[in-house]
Design a protein around this nucleic acid. Sequence first.
DNA 1: TGTCGGCAGGAAAACGCTTTCCTGAGGCTA
DNA 2: TAGCCTCAGGAAAGCGTTTTCCTGCCGACA
Lengths: 339, 339
Amino acid sequence: MATLADVARRAGVSPATASRIISGSTKLVTEELRARVLRAVDELQYVPNAHAQLLARAQRTAVGVIVHDVSDPYFAEITRGLQQVATANGRLVIICNSYRDPARELEYVELLRAQQVAAIVLAGSGYHDPSFTKALKGKLAAYTRTGGRVSVIGRHELPGDAVMPANEEGGYLAGCEVFGAGHRKVGVIAGPKVLTTTTDRLAGLRRAARELGRTLPARRVAYAAFDRDGGAEATGRLLADTPDLTAVVALNDSMAVGALSALRARGIAVPDDVSVIGFDDMPIARDVTPALTTIRLPLTEMGARAMALALDDEERHDRVEPAAATLVRRESSQPLTSR
Amino acid sequence: MATLADVARRAGVSPATASRIISGSTKLVTEELRARVLRAVDELQYVPNAHAQLLARAQRTAVGVIVHDVSDPYFAEITRGLQQVATANGRLVIICNSYRDPARELEYVELLRAQQVAAIVLAGSGYHDPSFTKALKGKLAAYTRTGGRVSVIGRHELPGDAVMPANEEGGYLAGCEVFGAGHRKVGVIAGPKVLTTTTDRLAGLRRAARELGRTLPARRVAYAAFDRDGGAEATGRLLADTPDLTAVVALNDSMAVGALSALRARGIAVPDDVSVIGFDDMPIARDVTPALTTIRLPLTEMGARAMALALDDEERHDRVEPAAATLVRRESSQPLTSR
DNA sequence: TGTCGGCAGGAAAACGCTTTCCTGAGGCTA
DNA sequence: TAGCCTCAGGAAAGCGTTTTCCTGCCGACA
């Protein structure tokens, strides 16, 4: 690997001059030397060692992102937003998949700190796990103490700037839609209980039920993995318990897609027999059949805003930006009376 | 930010000893000193500077991945496979989205080289653009010359180890399925012409047509963006030209989903009026309605194998591993005779 | 008791770059 | 012509690690 010294030698100048020319310092240099150095760079196919640069400059430029799994559409959309503003600011982003393993999340914070990233963005759900939360807080505090920036998406248990999706409110909207439409036997397919996203959305749903004078008994809530197969499986359990269900609320769209598949497999028509409502409005929601009625969250925008918060140089690091949830009515749901 | 020197000072030892304890060298150290150093690490929340380590060790550990866009399911699946084997080998992966901009792809190769990555994996389609290909080859050659490893997925124009999806063969399978089922007015919705993926798949389709004594006139091939909206748009064009089309072959599943949507919007039944065949078998293919008949590519496995090729220490760097395409029959297609 | 071997720990060089500080040449003014 | 200022370019000191090489101590053996 060619080094700066090699380039300097070949061009017959000192490393100092070569460095100034290559990394565009403000210091003036004759056209002649400049040309010689650039030619040497070209001939040697020289690329500066980014690590050496970082060490010498002590100027942090990369940013780290910790998500559950980029290939999950929810995070893919958020990541798209994060990337957009990061690259617009000339930042390299390092993406880490925690696969919802708290231990791995902790490890990644260390790793990103070791990489000297300028900021860490944590996206996804928080955990109902005080000891883990405490450990994570500790690690993040150590990071911010040395000038690192932290911003989070939907994790109210953590310090730092935050973008907060209206999970509770979204749950409430879903609840109003379904209970308001006359459904009484309503099942909920939910993600893992330990996730704050699950409990927040569920809380909104419960509030709607209460306000509309309905109930949501515990056996109508089936917990499973927060993905398609989890949704299919949970729907099966719900149906086994309550065969005459008329509506299913899924706490995310992946699960809703699983529900659609489970219902179809049993020959149950959507929305004629059972209404289905999802959550998130990921891109495929409009392409399944019937197109999914869902609670929309501005995923890409949430990512973009979180990155913007992490990169600006405000004094305050405790800003909270809400991200509104809105109901998108499509074809997978209908009022009970229209049967 | 605490440094190794801080830790050493606090523990009352030399930096050398501290380093040996922290990064687990083989050299023996008394239990007493070890304990003191580890305590200091804990108290100072010390994390070694990864860049300094890299500089001192000259041991490349990260790997770089250049894809079109991780949030595209095709690449998301491949990336999942890449990540799996990378993390299994203790490697950090740096993901770069080129968004199919050749210039950006070139830049990212430089960037990854600057980051001293041990290997670069290029996934996605090649381009029919000799001058770009030459430039890219040059940059990659400069990288391999200094010990870097390169592996590619589906880019036969580039040197290095390769995983090659059977694009031509897959196109052929799709062609046999559709022409063999009696369809005569067959439209193809294709990605950009400059992509080798497009032309390879199309070539297979043409071969099938020829062998079965059919033709595929140029006006039955609509080129568009390789995504859902491109698929919808291209389908519209095809239908405008040939209203009595009986089959549409999409050159990837995203486009097929767009086709489904465009057909539904026009009240055309799938598969009763028009059969639709996709390509790739991305996860949602089975969840759209009707479930998509498609040419399956083992995406995750392709990613895993490409990373394995990049990380092993074989002498040869020109291995080619084929990835077979298989037909998956679902509900979006049927023989013409059954109408 | 003297010498040697082994071993724990430290000093210092090296990794590849940036940047401060310094040098020396040239041009200008008095 | 002497003196000063300006400015291009170089020497060298870091940046935070790792690792080679060296030192000094202790125990063992003759």
